[in-house]
Lab assay of single mutants.
Amino acid sequence: MGSVRTNRYSIVSSEEDGMKLATMAVANGFGNGKSKVHTRQQCRSRFVKKDGHCNVQFINVGEKGQRYLADIFTTCVDIRWRWMLVIFCLAFVLSWLFFGCVFWLIALLHGDLDTDYKDDDDKSKVSKACVSEVNSFTAAFLFSIETQTTIGYGFRCVTDECPIAVFMVVFQSIVGCIIDAFIIGAVMAKMAKPKKRNETLVFSHNAVIAMRDGKLCLMWRVGNLRKSHLVEAHVRAQLLKSRITSEGEYIPLDQIDINVGFDSGIDRIFLVSPITIVHEIDEDSPLYDLSKQDIDNADFEIVVILEGMVEATAMTTQCRSSYLANEILWGHRYEPVLFEEKHYYKVDYSRFHKTYEVPNTPLCSARDLAEKKYILSNANSFCYENEVALTSKEEEEDSENGVPESTSTDSPPGIDLHNQASVPLEPRPLRRESEIGSRR
């Protein structure tokens, strides 16, 4: 089982795998120059863009038009607004034209077009017409509009002379109601789609790998820009990579689940303020055997998904993003964004995407760390350097704002901070800030 798991979770494809794949392509008759073999020097295209759209195009789909027309309502909801407006206008105009032609044909076959009612006051002739005051196609078209929109100006009306005319008036009224219901329903469904809710759900630009509770963890940050909550919010993550099976089958995008606390339930989050999602790199993680150097040379993509129900409509929305291997910062942490004021908490989104480097973060893999092949620094050293990194950030910001350097908390000259780390230190809580992250 261990060997199978290692093969499945191998992220960085070796040169031997690339040569094996190329040999397979030639042997199977696919070596026509169009096949692409992804190596370390040639990274694959992003499968999920940063804005959440999937970078996929469908080609050679059989009976595409028929399949889309069979699900016309979903098609109308998914198309762009400009095409929705075109369909909206065409549906009414074509129905008016169709029934206008029908009423014109009825008048033509009944002989109503030969009668001039402007110079004739004989009401008996008017009563013999199928539709009064309809003696041309324009008049028939206007009567069709008046019937379907129930305008009723009063000059044109159907008589009991022709039952077919009466039937067409009733039929057009029913068709008009159906068109109204369909168009209004599609427009309302399109307006109520929770897709735009994703514009106020954000992911951090970069993911980070750092120590948390004595273990290497992959972390990324999510935030909600609205005050309205995302009900039943939960997160998922998958690692996408290519691999070759033991039988020699090439899988271009193998999807591997990344555990973010599904078993323990901590994948469900209360997204009021930005939260750091934590994936513990343990023996079940696809990143277990990867060191910093392996991450730098790897070719994979981590897709992160945030799902929840919109509070206003109770409709489920899904926000997506992805991180390539070069977008994962090893040995970094996110800057705090949640600050405790006197009577409330304040979230500073200008710090949302910012990170700071944490010294002495192990550069080895989580496996080597678990097997004690890498000796961690003293816990006080880690905490102290973590505090120094934050303090230096604040000093830089104070210097930019014009604060005198004498007010900063610099260490005395001639003292090495790293050498001082081995000395037991008193706890130094942050002056006014605390970061709330997901705790395992």
Rank of each mutant, 00 (worst) to 15 (best):
S3L: 03
V4C: 05
N7Y: 04
R8H: 07
R8D: 14
I11F: 12
S13C: 09
S13H: 06
S14Q: 09
S14D: 11
G18I: 06
K20A: 12
K20H: 12
L21Q: 09
A22V: 03
A27Y: 04
N28P: 14
F30W: 07
F30V: 15
G31Q: 12
K34L: 13
H38E: 15
T39D: 13
C43W: 06
V56Q: 09
V56N: 08
Q57G: 14
I59G: 11
I59M: 10
K64A: 13
K64D: 05
L69F: 12
L69D: 08
A70N: 08
T74V: 07
T74S: 12
C76P: 14
D78C: 11
I79M: 05
W81S: 02
I87G: 15
I87V: 10
C89I: 14
L90W: 05
L97Y: 01
F99I: 00
V102E: 00
L105P: 00
A107E: 03
A107S: 05
L108W: 13
L109T: 15
H110Q: 02
G111Y: 02
L113G: 02
D114R: 07
T115Q: 09
D116S: 15
Y117G: 00
S124P: 03
K125V: 15
K125W: 15
A129E: 04
C130L: 03
C130H: 02
E133S: 09
E133M: 12
S136H: 03
S136E: 01
A139N: 15
A139R: 00
S144I: 02
I145W: 10
I145S: 03
E146D: 02
T149H: 09
G152M: 02
G152P: 07
Y153I: 03
F155Y: 05
F155Q: 07
C157P: 04
C157I: 09
V158N: 02
C162H: 01
I164W: 12
V166N: 01
F167N: 02
M168R: 00
Q172N: 00
Q172Y: 02
S173Y: 12
V175Q: 06
G176I: 02
C177H: 15
C177F: 15
C177R: 15
F182D: 02
I184Q: 04
I184C: 07
I184Y: 08
A189E: 03
A189Q: 14
A189N: 13
K190M: 11
M191V: 10
A192S: 06
P194I: 03
K195T: 12
E199M: 10
T200Y: 11
L201S: 07
V202S: 08
F203C: 06
F203A: 03
S204M: 00
S204G: 04
S204A: 09
N206G: 02
N206W: 04
A210S: 12
R212S: 03
R212Q: 14
R212F: 05
L218Y: 01
L218S: 00
M219S: 08
W220R: 00
W220E: 00
W220C: 06
R221I: 00
R221Y: 00
K227C: 06
H229W: 13
A233K: 07
R236M: 06
K241R: 11
R243D: 03
T245W: 06
E247T: 07
E247H: 12
L253M: 14
I256R: 07
I258A: 00
V260L: 06
G261V: 04
G261R: 10
F262W: 11
D263Q: 10
G265A: 12
I266Q: 14
R268I: 05
S273W: 06
I275H: 10
T276N: 07
T276Y: 08
T276I: 06
H279L: 02
E280L: 11
D282H: 06
S285T: 00
S285Y: 01
L287P: 02
D289Y: 03
D289G: 04
L290G: 00
S291T: 10
D294M: 06
D294L: 03
I295A: 06
D296I: 06
F300S: 02
I302G: 01
I302E: 01
V303Q: 05
V304C: 10
L306I: 09
E307V: 06
E307G: 08
G308Y: 05
M309V: 11
A312G: 11
T313V: 09
M315F: 06
S321P: 00
A325L: 00
A325E: 02
E327H: 00
I328H: 02
L329C: 09
L329D: 02
W330F: 01
W330V: 00
H332M: 06
H332K: 04
Y334F: 07
P336H: 15
L338S: 04
F339V: 10
F339A: 14
E341F: 10
E341C: 05
K342D: 08
K342W: 04
H343M: 05
Y344N: 14
Y345R: 05
V347N: 08
F352T: 00
K354T: 14
V358W: 06
C364F: 06
C364V: 11
S365E: 00
A366N: 01
K373F: 05
I375R: 12
S377G: 12
N386Y: 08
N386C: 08
V388S: 15
T391C: 10
S392Q: 13
K393W: 05
E396G: 13
S399E: 13
V403I: 13
S406I: 10
T407V: 08
T407M: 08
D410F: 08
D410G: 09
P412Q: 10
P413G: 11
P413I: 13
I415T: 13
I415Y: 03
H418M: 12
Q420E: 15
S422A: 13
L425E: 13
L425K: 07
R428W: 08
R428T: 14
L430Y: 05
R432T: 15
E433T: 11
S434R: 15
S434P: 13
